[in-house]
Design a protein around this nucleic acid. Structure first.
Lengths: 165, 165
DNA sequence: TATCTAAGTTCATATATTGAACTCAGGCTT
DNA sequence: AAGCCTGAGTTCAATATATGAACTTAGATA
């Protein structure tokens, strides 16, 4: 990955930045950990609670926020002989977070885990070979990470795309 | 992306999870926004401050944390006629966050921005064509997001890889 | 009727954030 | 030389949020 040119102002105004906006509901440790667990198959209040050792009231407010953001849904499940209970499932929007979370896991295993063998490896179901997150072009061909630059929509570029020095 | 099988416990214990560990220093809104700005070329204290409208003491503690985590370095720059001033640069570890952040941006533009034309588009320098984040195998060939499963290192799998129902 | 369980809520205490004002060091102006 | 300017922080009182323990609730079972 290549170092960016120096700027006084970021080229994308915070108000136009959907990435920054997503941090409103995903930008805290507990929400990120809850989504991590959900992506791994956890669904129930008490399972999130004991897995993460999160205070119950915090879990409650975070789940509400994630539901409100459209990342999770709260629905009832029913097993015979038990009363219906709520479970928290990822929506399609939430499932789509798998890719960024895999990218982040890949980063963490390289840089936090120092490339030691990871506890879990993501593989392709059809042939059991490991899978990676990478940059590709529209034909699916790999793109070198130092071969990137950016263009800006004209409505968004108010002197902001200028670099300095 | 495919829904995961139901589990009471996540298959990776939190203590072995480098992803979860990374949230210790990246799991808050301000740190994420600071890294976003740094990836876009911002380097100076006051530029981070005015770009994000972050309280100065919070910015100070967050930058210290990111430096301590190895994501940024604080070094001096010198321009003629001014005294040396500090600037905050991404380390190699920090630059490597570009991929997860691009994945997250791609997600946010799809799901938060509802696929409206984004203010910024990442393109390949050599041919100006847009670039995407995607799953690939070790030969760089695309992998379908619903074609994934996982294996677990035997030292990590203490009944945790079992699914339920 | 009493007990158990999963899913919450309540509340006092502890911790963190906010925003404004202040400091500090070195360069520039008069 | 004295005073002002600028960028990079620090300090501190007020406010907001998190923590952890205890409590509540609704159905199922004994």
């Amino acid at each position: 990955m290549e170092a960016p040119p120096f700027r006084h102002r970021s080229p994308v105004h915070l108000n136009n930045c959907h990435l920054a906006a997503s941090f409103d509901f995903l930008g805290d440790r507990w929400s990120l950990l809850i989504v991590r667990c959900a992506l791994l198959g956890i669904r129930r209040f008490d399972d999130f609670q004991s897995e993460l050792d999160i205070p119950r009231n915090i879990l409650s407010t975070r789940l509400k926020k994630l539901v409100e953001a459209g990342i999770m849904t709260r629905q009832s499940y029913k097993i015979a002989g038990c009363r219906p209970r709520p479970e928290y499932l990822l929506t399609e929007m939430g499932q789509a977070l798998r890719l960024p979370f895999l990218a982040m896991r890949q980063w963490a295993e390289r840089w936090v885990g120092n490339d030691r063998p990871p506890p879990m490896t993501i593989i392709r179901k059809s042939d059991d070979r490991p899978v990676y997150v990478s940059l590709v072009d529209s034909d699916g061909r790999p793109v070198a990470p130092d071969d990137l630059t950016a263009t800006f929509a004209d409505w968004a570029a108010e002197d902001r795309s200028k670099t300095c020095r």
